[in-house]
Nucleic acid binder design. Structure first.
Lengths: 184, 184
DNA sequence: CAGCCGCCTTTACGCAGTAAGGTGCGATCA
DNA sequence: TGATCGCACCTTACTGCGTAAAGGCGGCTG
């Protein structure tokens, strides 16, 4: 009766993410993760041989990798809506932000960076400009979400400022600095 | 002979910072910090009663609090040179970036944020614009330094890209989006 | 001299990550 | 059929962490 489904790397990662979202990164431990999976902690090592380090890497990849989806609208509009989606993803899993900032998993942001760069080229920027632009955009996103995260953790009851509005306005300023207005 | 000077909060924090810079945040432990100070770990608790939590808060305050200095040049130029100084400070102590991003020590960035806001107002922005602008600028700074930190930890030998140049160019784009060109 | 207080050490507890080895069970093959 | 094997998971045990609690110890004050 009720024999649990077998452990998989995916299930482990999803459960870990769920645990972080609910309890915070600090409460993610191998033993607790094992409990959530109804398994002894050491069982996890069979699927992630490099232990917690590897688990955290996978978590970053799962959250931070979100390239601009293909499409054919105005580059500027596509960037804008991607930025909103990306921020949404990051805020959904604020708990992993410290991991993303830490040295772990280089290359997790590679695909994302490249896709932005490409889109900026489509928008008419030269190679060097697109290179800088992608860095600016990704930097603004990570930094701004980090700031939001610390605010929302400081217990300000959100009536103080409208973060969404601020983000949208800020994104507008950033894009204004990056992409020259398209001639009609 | 050679009786050590007494422990102080300042000395503890400086030593901790030194330890992080040299060995990384992960190797900062109370026991190791005690060793560096030639003291038993528990001695630290006499000066920081709330233990490691309090230590980390102090580290953040020490690194992240750097308001725009008073002066009387062009607001835009003052912002630019402050941004360079701030980035320099953050890169000097990359190890604490994860702490700054984490929820700890709300208000460590308060003074800094306010000083930027004020300067943007001097530059002619309206209250709401200055509010957004300060968020954009601080966000860009934190995010961009975080990105640089992960790059430099990934072992890219810096001949790949010139981070300084990229930062300067990016800062230019951001400022261009925020402050309208001053009429001569 | 007695008492106190500020600074540091000692001891000990619970929890963390994980190395090493063991167990049980289904598939494979003689 | 029964022996063998290997995968998936468990058990045990070790080291190192943060820190509560209590103990010493030297210098000051009364």
């Amino acid at each position: 009766m009720s024999q649990r489904e077998p452990l998989t790397r995916e299930r482990i990662i999803e459960t870990a993410l769920h645990l972080i979202d609910g309890q915070g990164l600090g409460r993610l431990t191998m033993r607790r993760l094992g409990d959530s999976l109804q398994v002894e902690a050491m069982a996890i090592y069979h699927h992630l041989p490099h232990g917690k380090e590897q688990l955290l890497e996978q978590l970053i990849a799962h959250v931070a990798a979100l390239p601009v989806p293909p499409g054919d609208g105005e580059p500027r509009d596509r960037l804008r809506s991607w930025a909103h989606a990306y921020r949404g993803r990051l805020l959904e899993h604020v708990g992993v932000m410290p991991l993303i900032v830490t040295r772990r998993n280089p290359g997790a942001l590679m695909a994302t960076t490249l896709s932005i760069r490409e889109l900026l080229r489509e928008a008419g920027l030269r190679e060097a400009e697109a290179f800088v632009g992608a860095h600016v955009l990704l930097g603004y996103l990570l930094g701004t979400v980090a700031l939001e995260a610390r605010e929302q953790a400081s217990g300000t009851t959100s009536d103080e400022v409208d973060s969404d509005e601020r983000f949208t306005a800020g994104l507008d300023r950033v894009l204004a600095g990056l992409v020259r207005p398209t001639a009609p």
